[in-house]
């Protein structure tokens, strides 16, 4: 069983939901990332989404764009990020790690090299926001053969027909984008999300993670009541950005936010 499936199974048995933090790898500098991953796990992160910085992050808001710029100023590359995963695995063999980013970085490395390296370093999943199922048949097959999950987005504008197609192509978990917009935009409307999740559930047995617009313990707890996983990104990245010259302080802020979310999620049930 994949680490992602095992993780969701274990949580389900406990009646809990996954807390899934996103940080951009190499932000504010590459030395911070692996330590931060361990710290996030220690306060209750279940799965880690690690962003691959890209010069032109079209689907992201200014917060993550700036994180990309900070990471790229230190020349953070996909190859370095895969090494970070390997380093993380030296001390942690259970927490799933998912890379999230844009296709060009993977295309440039080469699909074969990427999949082989990802398998070697025990990566668990890949979410490329500009790679829809239609364009990823071969790559999806390669990922599956290597035991890696291909995670796709479903959004408020996704039609039922496409939901079917996306659910058929995806594995690991489905990522529901709670709003029309970029990362770090408006606050979440939990009722509207719940309605759409009901529709998605008709087409998949996979766990459902919800992201975009979750910025505090309260919204995390509310989403935990309707989804299997809570993805939180911009609020953490913002903390790293605000303290870019003092990464230790930034990491402490990330840890504090996550532990508050964890607590709220676990007590709300």
């Amino acid at each position: 069983m994949s680490r992602i499936a095992a993780c969701f199974d274990a949580l389900k048995a406990q009646g809990r939901q996954a807390l899934i933090p996103y940080v951009t790898a190499g932000d504010p500098n590459p030395q911070v990332t692996v330590g931060l991953m361990h710290q996030m796990v220690s306060v209750g992160a279940d799965i880690i989404e690690l962003g691959i910085p890209f010069s032109d992050p079209m689907a992201d808001g200014p917060v993550i764009q700036l994180a990309c710029e900070r990471a790229l100023a230190h020349k953070t590359s996909l190859a370095m990020i895969l090494s970070m995963v390997a380093e993380f695995r030296e001390q942690n063999d259970t927490t799933p790690v998912v890379l999230m980013g844009y296709l060009n970085t993977v295309e440039k490395m080469g699909y074969d090299v990427f999949v082989a390296t990802a398998k070697k370093v025990s990566l668990d999943g890949v979410l490329l926001v500009d790679l829809p199922p239609e364009e990823s048949e071969d790559f999806g097959k390669d990922l599956r053969q290597a035991g890696l999950d291909a995670i796709f987005l479903i959004t408020p504008t996704t039609t039922e027909e496409r939901i079917k197609k996306i659910c058929a192509a995806g594995s690991g978990y489905m990522y529901y984008v709670s709003l029309k917009g970029v990362t770090g935009a408006a606050a979440i409307d939990t009722d509207a999300v719940a309605e759409k999740l009901d529709l998605v559930k008709q087409h998949t047995q996979l766990p459902l993670g919800v992201g975009f617009g979750i910025r505090d313990a309260d919204s995390a707890a509310r989403v935990a009541q309707i989804a299997d996983g809570v993805v939180v990104g911009s609020v953490l990245v913002n903390a790293l950005g605000d303290n870019a010259s003092d990464p230790e302080k930034g990491c402490a802020q990330v840890v504090l936010t996550l532990s508050e979310m964890r607590q709220a999620m676990d007590t709300a049930v």
Binding site: A59, D130, L131, F152, I154, T157, I166, V177, G181
Partner: peptide
């Protein structure tokens, strides 16, 4: 060519 965009834009 093709269509390499985030899911939100597919319907549009």
């Amino acid at each position: 060519g093709g269509r390499f965009v985030s899911e939100t834009l597919f319907a549009a």
